[in-house]
């Protein structure tokens, strides 16, 4: 990186602009594919009445929900990484996804689908409150203790879900849905709600981008740089929790996105929050729309695959490849 050049002329900036263009192109391409392909073949430019309604009432909201969910999860993962000062943190390690899934499943079994969102939010906040109580020491958040507390909350919530699964054998399908994820229940209202959460949290991060980067330092360095570290961590945690809860309530647990999207961007050399936040949003959206497109179209006759299973399988395989082939880069990142 040419360190002696002015910022506007730095090759890094040009690279970032190029990558931004590339990401927009990718997003547009995948959006086009996702809109034009599905269980039912649609001639996008010559639609009959049924086709038009399928497109507008079923496919479009679903593609949009998938996109915003991907963006939300990537963003949540990124924020959790700043909180934990660890590039391998995501919604999973804070116990956020498991506790919101627990809330969703409880609501589903006891009350019905209407209460799933508030219950998921409640579950996440309760889970995070537990993590917080354990990891707080005189107003400070201790990242390592927090990782541990997150794993405990995660294990506990998963165990309770397993218990519920066991007790409610016949409702297994709908519980399993929350564990495997899917975008069938897309509505424009949900898309709007999630989009609001995504844009608000992204804006929050963008406005504080340099401070976000400073949270990666040890506490003393960050604090003595004038960063309100503990407040920032709490807010990032809250933003991540909100994003996780909303996406879990709408689409279940979808693994690996929060981990893999920021990781790939970092491997590609994009390291600063000012770049990672918008790129993560775009890349996460593209990734998830593609995953859902595959989930909708891989099987014949309109059969579907659970999208969470797909992302975890693909993501897991890809991560294994990275671990085997590019150990060095990964090691140096962490």
């Amino acid at each position: 990186m040419g360190s002696s050049l002015a910022p506007r002329l730095r090759p890094g900036n040009r690279r970032e602009l190029l990558a931004l263009g590339g990401l927009f192109l990718l997003l547009g391409l995948i959006f086009g594919l996702a809109i034009s392909h599905g269980a039912v073949p649609l001639e996008i430019f010559h639609l009959d009445e049924t086709g038009r309604r399928i497109l507008l009432e079923v496919r479009l909201p679903r593609v949009l929900l998938a996109g915003f969910t991907g963006a939300a999860l990537a963003l949540a993962g990124l924020y959790f990484q700043y909180v934990m000062q660890n590039p391998l943190a995501d919604a999973f390690t804070t116990g956020a996804s498991a506790s919101s899934a627990l809330g969703a499943v409880l609501a589903l079994l006891l009350a019905g689908e209407k209460l799933v969102l508030p219950a998921a939010l409640g579950g996440t906040l309760l889970g995070l409150l537990a993590v917080f109580r354990i990891a707080s020491l005189r107003g400070r958040l201790l990242p390592v203790t927090m990782l541990l507390a997150g794993i405990v909350v995660n294990t506990f919530a998963s165990a309770v879900i397993s218990l519920l699964k066991f007790l409610a054998e016949d409702s297994l399908a709908s519980i399993v849905f929350w564990l495997m994820g899917g975008f069938q229940n897309a509505t424009y209202a949900r898309v709007g709600f999630l989009a609001g959460a995504v844009f608000a949290s992204a804006l929050y991060g963008l406005l504080r981008a340099p401070a976000l980067d400073l949270t990666a330092f040890d506490d003393e360095t960050a604090l003595s740089s004038g960063v309100p570290l503990y407040r920032l961590r709490r807010e990032l945690l809250l933003a991540g929790a909100l994003l996780t809860a909303v996406s879990v309530a709408f689409s279940g647990i979808i693994g690996f996105v929060g981990l893999i999207v920021p990781h790939l961007l970092r491997l590609a050399g994009f390291l600063r929050a000012g770049v990672l936040v918008p790129f993560g949003l775009l890349f996460g959206a593209a990734f998830m729309m593609l995953a859902d497109l595959l989930a909708r179209t891989l099987l014949p006759q309109g059969q579907e695959l659970p999208v969470g299973v797909l992302t975890s399988t693909l993501g897991g395989l890809f991560f294994l490849y990275l671990l085997l082939k590019r150990k060095r880069e990964l090691y140096e990142l962490a």
Binding site: A39, I54, V58, G112, S171, S174, G302, Q303, E304
Partner: peptide, 26 residues
């Protein structure tokens, strides 16, 4: 079968039956 809602609309059945019970609680 886990089915896409699109497919239901495209197949356009004359009757759509939904069951309520342990597998479809609320």
């Amino acid at each position: 079968i886990l089915l896409s809602p699109e497919k239901v609309l495209a197949l356009d059945p004359e009757v759509y039956i939904y069951q309520v019970g342990p597998m479809n609680r609320h």
